[in-house]
Simulated scan of single mutants.
Amino acid sequence: MPASTINLDDRYYPPLEVKVDAQDAGKEVRTVLERRLGVSRKLLSQVKLTEHGLTVNELRAYTSAKVAEGDVIRLRMEREESDDILPENIPFQIVFEDVSLLIVNKPAGMIVHPTHGHYTGTLANAVVYHWKSLGERVRFRPIHRLDEETSGLVAIAKTGYVHQQISEQLQAGEVDKRYRAYVYGSPDPSSGVVNEPIDRDSDRPHLRVVRPDGYPSITHYETAETFGAEQEGGGAAACIKLKLETGRTHQIRVHMRHLGCPLIGDKLYGPDEGGIERWEQAVGRQALHAETLSFVHPLTKQRMVWHAPLPPELIQLEAVLRGKS
Rank of each mutant, 00 (worst) to 15 (best):
D10T: 13
L16Y: 00
A22R: 13
Q23P: 04
T31K: 12
R36I: 07
R41C: 10
K42W: 13
L44F: 10
H52N: 13
R60W: 01
A61D: 03
A61C: 06
S64L: 06
K66M: 01
K66T: 13
I73M: 08
L75I: 12
L86Y: 07
P87W: 01
N89V: 09
N89E: 08
F92D: 04
F96C: 08
F96M: 04
L101S: 03
V104L: 04
N105P: 03
N105K: 05
H113Q: 14
P114W: 02
L123D: 01
A124F: 02
A126G: 07
V127A: 10
H130R: 14
S133W: 00
V138N: 12
R139K: 15
I143L: 11
D147T: 04
G152F: 06
V162R: 02
S167L: 11
E174F: 13
Y182W: 15
G185D: 04
D188W: 07
G192V: 08
V193S: 06
V194Q: 10
P197F: 10
D203P: 06
D203T: 11
P205F: 15
P205L: 06
R208Y: 14
P212R: 04
Y215N: 11
P216Y: 03
H220I: 01
T223A: 13
E230D: 12
Q231S: 08
Q231R: 13
E232S: 13
G235K: 09
G235I: 03
A238V: 06
L242W: 02
L242A: 14
E245G: 14
T246M: 02
R253V: 04
R253Y: 06
G265Q: 01
G270E: 02
P271M: 07
D272S: 14
E273V: 08
I276K: 04
E277C: 11
E277S: 14
A282T: 07
R285I: 03
A290Y: 00
E291I: 02
S294H: 01
S294V: 01
F295H: 00
H297P: 03
L299W: 05
T300Q: 03
W306T: 01
P309K: 02
P312G: 07
P312R: 10
E318R: 15
A319W: 01
